[in-house]
Every structure is written in C-alpha cells, then in structure tokens.
Amino acid sequence: MSSQVGQQIRGAGKKPILSYHNVMKRFGNFTALNGVSLDIYSGEVVCFIGPSGSGKSTMLRGTNALDPFDEGQVFLDGSPLPTSENEARHLRRRMGMVFQNFELFPHRTALENVMIGPVTVLGTSKDQAAKAALKLLDKVGLADKTQNYPANLSGGQQQRVAIARALAMEPELLLFDEPTSALDPETIGEVLNVMKTLADEGRTMIVVTHEMNFAKRVADWVVVFERGQVVEQGPPEQIFDDPHTERTRNFLSHLGWHG
C-alpha cells in the first residue's frame, strides 16, 4: 500500500530526468545487470543499496557511459543516452561523479583539481575558474586547504575536494559511487554532512552507499539491488521500516539493521 502511495506522490505531474528501461550489462560470463527499469526525478536523492556485486556501481558507470550498457534504453530528459564517445563527453558534462577512491589528480593542488574541469572542458578562464573553485572549496569546508596536494589531505578532505570538483562543472545530476567506503570511520561524517547540504539544496543525486543511516535520513527514494536486479524500491520509510520483500529484509538484517 504505502509504496503505491509513495509512487503516486513521487511521479505526480513530472517527467523523470532519468529513465532506465530493461537495462542489461555483462562482463564476460557474469551478468552484472539483468533487466533493470527505474525512474529518477529531478530534485530527488536516490540511494542504491544492496550487497557488493549486485550491480549498483555498474548502474552509475553505465549512466555516464564510462562503461555503457549492453542492452536496454536510458532516457535523459526524454532523449536516449548517446552511444558515440563524442556525444558521451557532452553527457558527462551534465553529470558530476564522485568515486570511491576519490581519484583526485595527485599532480594538482586541491584548487587546481577543482579548476581542471571548467578550464579544460568548458574553456573557462583560469581567473574565473579559480574564483568559482575557491567558493566551492569554502562550501565543502576546505577554504584553508586550497594549496594542498592530495597527498597532504586526509581521506575525508580528499573526498570533499572531489565533490567540489564534480560541482565545478555545474552538473544537473550528481553520481556518488560509494563515496565513504574507502574512508576512516572518523572522516565519514564530514563527507556525509556535505552530501546532506547538497541534498537540502534540492540537487538531483544518485548515491550508491552502504551507509543505511544516511539513506534513511536523506534519501527521497531507495532502490534495493540484488544480483543485477531491482528487488524493491520505495521511500526510505518503506524500505527500512516496512520492507515488502523477503530479500530486502534479509539484506537489512544481514547488515544488523533493526530500524
């Protein structure tokens, strides 16, 4: 019942910004995604949860064509995802991505890491890019670390720079691929707080995460993956307090989740 209610409220009068139709992805003999259909609406925070290897990250890498889907269709704002490398570049400018291992460029300072996208891809002037980058670093709480190289930043600080780097492209959509999985426990909070701020601004975000508290607190919509399929989706209250499927219940109890 509640899921239907949720869905009605969720989709009401809006077109999805992202719409997946029966998406498939194989790696050799391994089927990573086996027919996933899903809608994502503008302004939503959607969390993908599920066991390791269930296809959550594959969804993200397919979405910005870093690792394109084999079959199925994806519509971004109503038009299909491009297949050629050239169009894929245009697509990636519209989506910011944050990686599990940060992937900051070690030969650039924090500031330069944030500037590199606008300067090389958008052709923004260095002055302008630097100004914008300073603002973004301030926003993620690193105004005093702009000249540090990644090696001189903690994991949490690096990930916050990586978020600023993604924001610098002024993306319509933010993709987070397990942004806190590689972090020390004590720095996870600072990254999640930044993400919460972004969510409160009404940004569209897809977050692959193992942080169930974050998903419950921040997500508008939660999708549970298992073996390349969507097991269940719904608002967090449904998924965490009243899961409708046995597999969701199993996954959550496996994590020791008790509401």
């Binding site: 890498r61 910005n64 870093l66 490398e85 570049r89 245009h90 990636r92 400018r93 989506m95 910011g96 991505m97 990686f99 291992n101 992937e103 900051l104 460029f105 070690p106 030969h107 590199i116 996208g117 090389t120 891809v121 780097r165 993604a166 492209m169």
Partner: peptide
C-alpha cells in the same frame, strides 16, 4: 580510475592523456 575521473568530467581521451596521465 584516474582516467575515468577525467572522462567523468567530460574530458576527451586526448585531454585525459595530456592533463592527467602524462603529467603523472
């Protein structure tokens, strides 16, 4: 991952090579 981070910013393969891979 470094290549993917560059591509995710919308860089071309050539830009990724010039700005990210070769300097490192």
């Amino acid at each position: 991952g470094q290549v993917q981070a560059g591509l995710a910013l919308g860089m071309s393969r050539f830009q990724v090579l010039r700005e990210i891979v070769l300097p490192q």
